[in-house]
Design a binder for these strands. Structure first.
Lengths: 200, 200
DNA sequence: TTGCGATTCGCCTTTTATTCGCTAGAATGT
DNA sequence: ACATTCTAGCGAATAAAAGGCGAATCGCAA
């Protein structure tokens, strides 16, 4: 069920509009939201998405688009079998294993959001540009944890967190970059990193 | 739920009126509340909303409208908000964004399994011991893709895949390790890597 | 029975969805 | 390398639904 970049745009717009307004958008509103000038284009997108089973729509009915939550809960795509370890020797068997892994193993029941990483400040930590970090929203952090921190209220960065007396050291994991030292009062923790997700 | 702008207005008015007064409004009150002059219009709205299952009403009875509780949106842990990019400057806002990321964005509907990585053979690719690679089960691969490959039926490894004439080169992403050369017949592709998941 | 609110009936305007024909680029298969 | 299919886009014409009106009618309850 290949979904194109543009189709995801459309789907995201629909979800956000519906969330924001409480009703679904008209084709014209979709068009202007996506920056296209033709209703036909919108119509084609909607039709395609409907054919892919990602949304429902009543024929010729105004504002009748329903985005289906089926995207995730379709077939348990959120939980996948953990078949073993690689580079160990044996072929990967199609074994029925009880072991599985899923996002919820990482997330638990916590309030989590994702951020796309830009820059190389955590390169030695093997977090690179384009990765998504999964961040739990907290205001505190422990020594050595990777955090999203705000310095002087303006600069959000991804660093390791260390306390040094009344100062905070935010340590990049990149030997070419210098740590940031700041008084504890100037640093706001926005969350700590629970995991990393990368997509090829 | 397939609702129009005006219908939401009506529904909102009904909810707030009922909340405020403890009883439901007459059609005339609804009309003036909505700024319309015809009871017929109101009636049409109410009927439509009833057909959509959003409210209940007794026939020909005064003030007999019951707004049915809206279905709550269960929030799945498998889809999380993508709040923005990090190391960009601004604080991470608690914005309601439509953009989301989830495992299914990576997986699609393909047959996927996970493997825990051991060893450092893909270190320069920022895949390290302890990470989980998400692998689509395929028997073919394209030039340069990261694959799970079986050499001589015994040795499963994680490498980049290159074809060189009748030979296959399996290239580790680690400058300290040498590539594996093998005849195409001796190499079995077990799958290709779609993504990486890391858990701290 | 009588009155008030609910219902129904045409008829109108505005909003919205649908369809058609066309161009162009990307992805795929032979 | 080529043809084919799919995605993405444009503008215009058409059809249908949504929203609205006033007036006539109906039905319950006081």
């Amino acid at each position: 069920m290949a979904i194109t970049r543009r189709q995801k745009d459309v789907l995201d717009f629909l979800t956000s509009f519906t969330q924001r307004c409480g009703y679904s958008p008209s084709y014209e509103e979709i068009a202007s939201g996506l920056g296209v000038n033709s209703l036909a284009t919108v119509h084609k997108h909607i039709t395609n998405l409907q054919n892919k089973g990602l949304l429902q729509r009543a024929h010729n009915r105004s504002r009748s688009i329903d985005v289906l939550p089926a995207r995730s809960s379709k077939k348990g795509t959120d939980r996948l079998p953990l078949l073993g370890r690689i580079a160990a020797g044996r072929p990967v068997e199609a074994v029925e294993t009880a072991e599985t892994i899923s996002l919820s193993d990482i997330l638990g029941n916590r309030e989590v959001f994702a951020l796309e990483v830009r820059g190389d400040s955590m390169r030695d930590e093997h977090i690179v540009s384009g990765d998504y970090v999964l961040v739990e929203r907290t205001r505190t952090a422990r020594e050595g944890e990777i955090v999203v921190a705000l310095v002087d209220g303006t600069d959000a960065t991804l660093k390791r967190f260390y306390r040094e007396g009344s100062m905070i050291r935010l340590q990049p994991s990149n030997s070419e970059m210098a740590p940031i030292f700041a008084p504890a009062a100037a640093v706001t923790i926005q969350g700590k990193v629970l995991g990393v997700l990368r997509k090829y």
